[in-house]
Structures are given as C-alpha cells and as structure tokens.
C-alpha cells in the first residue's frame, strides 16, 4: 500500500476581505509516496508545500481532489488517519512557551493516548535522541531557535506515527544539528516509517531524500531522483569575485562552460557556470590573476527550476 497518495488536489484560499485576492495554493497536485520512502517536497516560498502538508495532516480541507494516508481518506476518515501520522511544523511557535520541553512532550504524549508512564518514558527517550536531555526541564521560552526546532521534532515523534510530515524541520538549526537531524531521518526510515519532508533547501533535499518532488506556484514541476538534482547543483555554480582586471574577465568569458560574466552591485563580478569542471578552470585562472576575494555559491532554487524546465522543454 502507498503511504501517501495525492490525486489532483487543488486548494484555493478565498479572500477574507473584499480587497483581498484569491490564491490558488495548490493546482491539481498529484503524487505518491511508497511506504518507507523519504520523499522531498521542494519549492520556493509560497509554492504550496505547507498547504499540502496541512491537507495531509487533516487540518485543512482541499477545495477538490482526494488524498489518502495509508489508504485512509484525509477528509472523510480523519479518525483513522490521525493516529498514524506525526507532524513537525517549523518555526518558533507551536509549543507552550511557559512550560518546559519535557512538559510539552508529556502533554503531547497524552494527546496521542499514551498513559502517563509511557509518556514520561517516551519523552525522556526522545529528549535524549534529539540531544535535549540536559535542557529538558528549562522553559521553552529560554530555548534558542534551534533548540525549539529539536523539541518540535521530538514532539512529532511522541505519537510514534508511521507517516511523518516534516515542514522545514531544520530552520534555525546550526549546521551540526542539521546534520544530526538528517542522520535521524535516516534512522526513522530504517524503522519503517515514511517521511514527507517539505523544504526549500536543495542541498538538504538532495542529501536525505529518496525522491524529490519539485513544486512551484501550486503546480508539480517534476519528481526527480536526488542524483539529478545533485548533477544540476554540481554543474551550475556561481562565483562572485572582486577587483579582477577586465582582461582576465575577458579570458574567463572565453572558457568553455562559462555562461555569463556580469557586474553586480555590491558583489563585484558574478560568473555563472553551467558545465561540470568549468568552475575549477575559472577558479584557477582567478587565483593566478591574484584575486583574493572569491566566493562560490549554489544557484538559487528558481535558477535550478529554470534549468530543469528548460532541459525538458516545459513551460511554467
């Protein structure tokens, strides 16, 4: 059985005030996630990721279309769906700030029908698992963003859900914590859980997911393996540099695989590369020309989209 099946889900938000506009947050989105998969939902701000996660977690009704979690309809069979899922919404809110982390978890355990002893035990296990055991009895309002995020994660696991919906679960985590988190995602999958991970972080999607669905403005653009995503990421690079003589820039422009060399306000010169290996040649040339302030960065999600879409001859 598929863990998650989404069939042509559309969600429209009607304006609340007369001056407001109607928003089509999801436009006939379909996707399936087999049991045991870590599935990424990748898209820029406003793409509709959170909207889809909320529909699947039964807290938002779709305007049209069907969705099932482990075979149960998320609109008509909420009572069957709810015990099977765990949700982690990102952000600072969504916790009782005046309570300790442990109290938050114990309360959540009771909502997932654990006895108070079971809730205490599981809270302790999860606090250790997300590295929060030593802060467990401090009030949440004293936690840093990253700590709150870990608590969110632990909370999402209190119910022992078979299908987990994670919405931007690493926002606010430092790189080390984010890495530990990704390892944890792997463990969760090994325990047989299915994970739908909404993120706008391409690197994260590439690192942890088995498959990634790219969405933009409410529409599915493609479902890719993370390898394809990785290839795009390694091919397309952006190099920002300052104070390089024009002659050198002209030489660089001639290097095969250099897509563009442009002056950018506040950055200096931006060199964009679209072929594997070209980055290295460009960097070597820059260094030999004595350039010191060189920064490479990944292309933005939008740029990757444009590339993927361009290669497939699709239109948005």
């Amino acid at each position: 059985m598929e863990a998650v099946e989404v069939e042509e889900i559309t969600r429209v938000f009607e304006p609340r005030r007369r001056s407001g506009t109607r928003v089509v947050a999801l436009d006939e989105v379909s996707l399936t996630v087999p049991t045991g998969e870590i599935h990424g939902l990748l898209g820029p701000n406003g793409a509709g990721k959170t909207t889809l996660v909320k529909i699947l977690s039964t807290v938002l009704l779709p305007t049209s279309g069907k969705a099932r979690v482990l075979g149960h309809d998320v609109v008509d069979e909420t009572e069957a769906v709810r015990p099977l899922i765990g949700i982690v919404f990102g952000g600072e809110r969504g916790l009782y700030w005046r309570l300790s982390g442990r109290q938050n978890l114990e309360y959540w355990g009771a909502l997932y029908k654990l006895s108070s002893r079971e809730a205490k035990e599981r809270a302790q296990q999860l606090l250790e698992r997300v590295g929060m055991a030593d802060k467990a009895d401090e009030r949440v309002e004293e936690y840093s963003r990253g700590m709150k995020q870990r608590l969110h994660l632990a909370r999402g696991l209190m119910g022992d859900g078979k299908v987990l919906f994670l919405d931007e679960p690493t926002t606010g985590m430092d790189p080390l914590a984010a890495r530990e988190f990704r390892a944890l995602i792997g463990e969760l999958r090994d325990e047989g859980r299915t994970i739908l991970l909404a993120t706008h972080d391409m690197v994260e999607a590439e690192m942890v997911c088995d498959r990634v669905t790219l969405i933009d403005r409410g529409k599915v653009i493609a479902t890719e393996s993370p390898r394809t995503l990785g290839q795009v990421l390694s091919r397309f690079q952006r190099i920002d540099v300052e104070g390089v003589p024009l002659v050198v820039l002209d030489e660089i422009r001639a290097i095969r695989g250099v897509a563009s060399v442009t002056a950018v306000d506040g950055v200096g010169t931006r060199i964009e590369v679209d072929e594997e290996g070209a980055t290295q040649l460009v960097l070597e040339r820059l260094v030999s020309a004595g350039a010191t302030s060189v920064r490479t960065s990944l292309p933005s999600l939008e740029e990757v989209y444009v590339q993927l879409i361009g290669e497939r001859g699709m239109e948005i």
């Binding site: 039964t58 807290v59 949700i87 919404f89 969504g94 009782y96």
Partner: peptide, 10 residues
C-alpha cells in the same frame, strides 16, 4: 500555532 497540531492528534 498550537491549534493545528492539537487538531491533528487523535
């Protein structure tokens, strides 16, 4: 933002 996760619980 607690209402949604509470509603999503059983």
């Amino acid at each position: 933002a607690l209402l949604e996760p509470i509603i999503a619980s059983p």
